[in-house]
Design a protein around this nucleic acid. Sequence first.
DNA 1: CCTATAAATGACTAACGGTCACATAAATCC
DNA 2: GGATTTATGTGACCGTTAGTCATTTATAGG
Lengths: 212, 212
Amino acid sequence: MALPENRKRARSDDEKEARRGAILQATRVMIEAKGFEGITMNAIAQEAAVSKGTLYLYAASKEELLLALFVDAMEQVVARIEAEATADTLADVLVQVPATTPLFLPLLARLFAVIEKNVADEPLFENKRKMRDMGMRVASVIVRLTGAPLDQARAASMTLMLAMRGAAQSDVLARRDLTGIPEDLHPMFTKENFVTGYSVAVRMILAGLTRS
Amino acid sequence: MALPENRKRARSDDEKEARRGAILQATRVMIEAKGFEGITMNAIAQEAAVSKGTLYLYAASKEELLLALFVDAMEQVVARIEAEATADTLADVLVQVPATTPLFLPLLARLFAVIEKNVADEPLFENKRKMRDMGMRVASVIVRLTGAPLDQARAASMTLMLAMRGAAQSDVLARRDLTGIPEDLHPMFTKENFVTGYSVAVRMILAGLTRS
DNA sequence: CCTATAAATGACTAACGGTCACATAAATCC
DNA sequence: GGATTTATGTGACCGTTAGTCATTTATAGG
């Protein structure tokens, strides 16, 4: 991901892409290490072994870095759903793939309220279009595997997205260590909270589909 | 909401409650005026005609102020649902009440990712319990109006909450003025986005209920 | 009126995202 | 291969804002 040993500046497009990749990877590392609220541009710069100014040659803001990570993760999710889902496993795959794609849930949980609020219009629009397209691809999978009519599949796909967004929120609170949390609230603070809640929604939504 | 004319300090519990109310109201005013991202503690203090330090006598952080506003709004929402819903109008009421209760959607959209992230454990736990209770009250309404068995009503209520959280996210992007936004993306940026998306979800979820 | 209590103040600090004048690596030219 | 040009990279600096705390003073009680 880094530049060749004896090169300090990225001049060609390939080199720029490599540097951008290194910066994104450094961002991932920092999220892993410090948690989502702990990341700072200084720390990312240090991890990527560049100066802070350089970060701003490759992303207009901290949030555009995070948006780029989200777009990556979202593409992985949809690609995996297309590849892995069968008629028998559709519901399971729709739940498990988002739950297990690295960084997808924490990024989705913060997409609207945190990330998109400081992104310029152009990348924002581009991301919105991409999300719409992803929704369509999921609708196609639903049509292919259930035989439902396209308009129903589209409505189901949009509703799935809604529920997934809602369920992803609980990822923010999820803690590895539940000590200090009252017994009766444990279910709300476990890592499994997303899967538990979203499973129910997925099954309800898919159950409403009819064959065309 | 303010203290009596010639009193500058709140000594009794009543006076403290009044001051707290004034601070919360000032926060509402500032959100209205500057938008959610534009609010600052300095501005709230000025609007409430107290010093910044005083704010911290009544709330441990900016986010605890916002959490208090959310709890208020949430209580209004559930109370209105209980009061207004009938067997015929249940779906409509479940959509319209959240959509029309002041500040409810913007606060819900930011509840997990923005507000709760800077709230001490105790108020956080209290809020979680309150939300769980609200969910139970909605489940009761569903039982009463549809005759569905309690466990089904509970699952439906939890799923409704999920979908509502997801749908509320779109409120963050909603703009009054759509100029500058590409035609094809207009639906995603309108104020009606919440109602449009959530209606579908509510009807799907309620349709799955059976009479006991 | 005097004293004790605690509510209120606001200058100050720390932290962080973002900027920009300047330094210099690397490509290009002769 | 030296000179010139281009634009990448740098990091000290800035503005903003949440939050703190030593100090002030309104109010209650004696």
